[in-house]
């Protein structure tokens, strides 16, 4: 493990980028209709340089159906995995991820309420759902932190996790209650429990990119503080970290990223939990390397999961969360046993 971490360098980032691009191209080529690799590359290359796409190439499928979906999948995977890595470091808990905080369920609750009540924004079909998801993600965070603060003025991580888990269960039961009362308004129950990225477009990708640039940038900037938190909150304070401020900044960034991802992709489990562990095997626990590696591995993993969900039982499309949970749970058990035995 440490030998791998020592060898981690810029070359690893090059390999990650190549693997990501390969997974993206593969995801565009494969599906209910297979597209030859040459056609896909030509269409992408010509579009990139503003050239005419030769006749006979399925331009519509490549550029309007699969490419936006693939970009959204990669961005959502990167965002979820980054949030998981940040939460695992911040809360010093290897079982933490975006959903541990309850923000994920809070975002889903907001989106489901928007759909049930038909809240929309003129001109943006998904605007209402997205705003409600983000708003509820943030409100959930505020509620959880206020309750944790009332319980324990120092905002101890154990209180945050405890209240997050309780809130998460509470929000999930509210979601099920709303769905059972107005099933016709909610587009799909599985979307909010298992996630899906079908039908996502370039506007979604734009919003995810913006969220990832701003909130992801903030989290990446806090890599050293996350190292300090991962070693111990008291130790972080002793070496001069402004513990409360940094905690709030990271939690707010995570909740915005989770809110945006949930509103676009639904609730996708296990990516945020498992992929940082996979990345840690490669990079060691140092967040300066772990955070970018988690983003890459989360993106690649979700691309492959999405590909599997579209192709395994084609033309039936499995919810992406089913695939991530099946693969993730198995992988997680293997990692757990290997790392515990290595100790």
């Amino acid at each position: 493990m440490h030998k791998l971490a020592e060898r981690f360098s810029w070359k690893t980032y090059v390999l990650f980028t190549l693997a990501l691009l390969a997974a993206m191209v593969l995801s565009i080529c494969l599906g209910s209709v297979s597209i030859p690799l040459g056609d896909t590359l030509t269409a992408l290359w010509n579009t990139l340089w503003g050239l005419e796409i030769p006749a006979g190439i399925s331009r519509n499928i490549i550029l309007n159906v699969r490419l936006p979906r693939v970009i959204n999948v990669a961005l959502a995977g990167a965002a979820l995995s980054l949030c998981g890595a940040a939460m695992q470091g911040l809360l010093r808990n290897p079982l933490a991820d975006g959903s541990t905080l309850g923000v994920s369920s809070g975002a889903s609750l907001g989106a489901v309420i928007a759909l049930a009540l038909g809240i929309t924004i003129p001109g943006a079909s998904f605007g209402g759902t997205m705003l409600m998801a983000m708003g509820f993600a943030f409100l959930s965070l505020l509620l959880i932190l206020s309750l944790a603060y009332a319980l324990d003025r120092s905002l101890a991580t154990s209180s945050i996790i405890l209240i997050g888990v309780i809130f998460s269960m509470f929000a999930s039961s509210l979601i099920n209650l709303i769905i059972s009362f107005s099933p016709e308004n909610i587009k799909s129950v599985t979307f909010w429990t298992m996630g899906s990225l079908s039908g996502t477009n370039y506007s979604h990708a734009g919003i995810l990119t913006l969220a990832l640039l701003i909130c992801g940038g903030v989290i990446l900037r806090c890599a050293r503080e996350l190292n300090a938190f991962a070693i111990g909150e008291d130790n972080a304070r002793h070496i001069g970290v402004n513990v409360r401020r940094v905690k709030l900044i990271i939690l707010a960034s995570v909740s915005i990223l989770i809110g945006v991802s949930v509103s676009i992709a639904g609730t996708i489990g296990f990516v945020g939990l498992v992929m940082p562990h996979m990345a840690r095997l490669l990079t060691g626990p140092n967040h300066q390397r772990l955070l970018p590696a988690s983003m890459f591995s989360g993106a690649i993993f979700l691309l492959l999961a999405d590909l599997a969900s579209r192709t395994l039982l084609s033309p039936v499309e499995l919810p992406i969360g089913v695939v991530t949970s099946l693969v993730g749970a198995a992988a997680f058990i293997v990692i757990l046993y290997r790392t515990r035995k290595a100790r």
């Binding site: 190292n227 300090a228 111990g232 130790n235 840690r280 626990p285």
Partner: peptide, 24 residues
């Protein structure tokens, strides 16, 4: 400050933990 209860949950190297002393 050197506190009494020091445990680390993740596999940081000795040099990484010591270097964090320079954070301030």
């Amino acid at each position: 400050v050197l506190s009494q209860r020091n445990t680390v949950g993740y596999a940081y190297t000795v040099a990484e933990v010591v270097s964090l002393g320079r954070y301030a």
